[in-house]
Amino acid sequence: MTDYNRDLMRLQLPLFLAHKLKEISPQYGKTVLMKMAYLLQEVYEVPLGYRFSLYTYGPYSSEVLADLDRSRYRGWVNVEYIEDEVGFQITLGQNAATLSELKDSFKSYEAEVEEVVENFGRFRAKELELRTTISYVWSKLGGPEEQKGNQVIESVSQLKPHFKKGEIQTALEELMEMGVVSLARK
């Protein structure tokens, strides 16, 4: 993939997801975009070229928001702060291309995007933050897989004390069932 194509794909990602998540996501905003980009790149190996690192709010790359800014200024998406929802909402902008017009940029990765949308599109920002944090922590911890679960729960619980250990365990089991945790890159 050329730098130009990757740049275009990154610029179009917020819009592409705005189309895909329109009827599905209860809260498509900056956090959901960030976590979707993480899952696409780190779990489903779509080469977006972002550099994610861990913060208390999960895996994060400032480049994702920089690209969202660029997409917004082209009028491809609107980014509005919704007071009641306590967060930003991303919707289609006045210059938004249609889904079929965008398909060229994503044609090699359509299956991956579909899978991410199907598996994670229904989650709220907070739920996605938990799941991507689990995925990140799992990918970075060494040791035998059978002992890893408890360690992941312990670390995520330290990182996000507002989640009960039971909630973390349920989310981890769900990700294991999907095969997502074992896929995340080290």
Binding site: L54, Y55, T56, K140, Q151, E154, S155, L159
Partner: peptide, 14 residues
């Protein structure tokens, strides 16, 4: 990530 104080220190990363 296996060291609890190291994990808590992430709060200051920003």
């Amino acid at each position: 990530l296996s060291n609890q104080s190291s994990v808590r220190r992430l709060l200051w990363r920003p």
